[in-house]
């Protein structure tokens, strides 16, 4: 299905939940936060959060920044 991930259209086959999306990009061990259609999803709910074609997903992390 086609998902809008971090502003890019991506075709991901075989993904059913956010946990599958995280695994697809190899992010299981990473410090990330996910927004799914503008709602923040707690990590423990990735496995039960179903994704559908057209969903808007933001995967964010902490980067260097300050002053």
């Amino acid at each position: 299905m086609t998902l809008l991930i971090n502003g890019q259209e991506r075709v991901l086959e075989e993904v059913k939940t956010l946990a599958d999306v995280v695994a697809h990009f190899g992010l299981n061990e990473r410090i990330i936060v996910i927004e799914h259609n503008l709602d923040i999803v707690p990590r423990e709910l990735y496995g039960e959060t179903a994704v559908q074609a057209g969903d808007k997903i933001e995967i964010v992390h902490f980067v260097g920044g300050g002053r």
Binding site: I5, F25, R30, V60, H61, F62, V63, G64, G65
Partner: peptide, 16 residues
């Protein structure tokens, strides 16, 4: 301090 940004999904393994 840190900033919050999109992860680069083309290169998710950039050092952090």
């Amino acid at each position: 301090t840190f900033a919050i940004r999109r992860l680069n999904i083309d290169n998710p393994d950039n050092p952090n």
